[in-house]
């Protein structure tokens, strides 16, 4: 039964209303604000990195597409050049055949 008053005292002491330490409110508010700032910086950086990656991939894709388009154009020009070369040789050949007829030996 001796312990009851002590316990009661201890409880009373524990539940006693005390005033908050000075500047606690300011510290809590500062901590919350800096956590918010850190989080918004991280989000911003993530967005920048994602945008940069997207731009890099997009530019590379565009470059590859452009290179391919140019390569196809070159291939077409190459083929056209061969066709013209072929045509010119044929024309010259035809001209020579017409202008310099082959004289066949006379046979009896």
């Amino acid at each position: 039964m001796n312990e009851s008053p002590d316990l009661e005292l201890q409880l009373r002491e524990a539940l006693r209303e005390t005033s908050a330490p000075p500047l606690l409110r300011a510290r809590i508010l500062n901590a919350a604000a800096s956590r918010g700032r850190r989080s918004s910086h991280a989000v911003l950086w993530r967005r920048i990195v994602a945008l940069a990656a997207l731009l890099t991939i997009g530019s590379f894709g565009l470059y590859r597409w452009e290179q391919r388009r140019r390569a196809e154009a070159v291939a077409e020009q190459f083929k056209l050049a061969l066709r013209i070369a072929h045509r010119e040789v044929l024309e010259v050949q035809a001209k020579l055949v017409v202008e310099v007829p082959v004289q066949l030996p006379q046979t009896n």
Binding site: K79, R83, H86, L90, Q93, A94, V98, V102
Partner: peptide, 18 residues
Amino acid sequence: LSGKLGVPNIQMGPAETS
């Protein structure tokens, strides 16, 4: 290349060219 790569299929040669 005659007949390939869009080159007309005509053989170069003295005969039948004209």
